[in-house]
Write a protein that binds this DNA or RNA. Sequence first.
DNA 1: ATGCTGATGGCCT
DNA 2: GGCCATCAGCATG
Length: 204
Amino acid sequence: MATPADLTVLEGPADRVAPLLLGAVLRHDGVAVRLTEVEAYGGADDAGSHAFRGRTPRSSVMFGPPGRLYVYFTYGMHHCANVVTGPEGSASAVLLRAGDVVEGLDLARSRRPGASDRDLARGPARLCRALALTREHDGVVLGEGTVELVPGPRPRVWETGPRVGLREAPDRPWRFWLPGEPSVSAYRPAARRPRRAGGRASEE
DNA sequence: ATGCTGATGGCCT
DNA sequence: GGCCATCAGCATG
């Protein structure tokens, strides 16, 4: 059994920690993923953060100490995982957007039927699926249970841009990724929902 | 390659 | 009741 990974890197604010997680390996239940794309959330004035309007049942883990997983459920079918960073109480976290499967390839394939290897963990919900992370893992302490995070060498280069799928704070370049990685998802501005045509003319 | 859209349910006002 | 830190499928160029 290996010594626990040093996670002191997580103690800083999310936008400073996020790029340092590029290249880190997250392992759970037979599959490990090397992170290639992440996003920072939280802090005092991030309108795009789940914590922006204060502590709620869903976001409460974000307000706790760094080194835990914050996993939420969205769109009625998808899970997304974050690593909570510091300082404690700042409600900061790094969303794990994409990675490469580096262990347990066959298991990951079986969890994502029909997906190409490149797509196995390309996108936050796909990454959770490949790693079998669900709301059951919300709040777990990294390294103490079945979820392990092993930081890699400090990345030397990365790129930044606006976060994906957010209407708020499109100007804040808090998405970080490794250049040239096939598993990095394409940028898409937040979809504005089509309102149902003009009013209530539609029937049921 | 890009673009739209439905699925589907928890979360929050 | 409206809004999603999304994805797959299908359409089109």
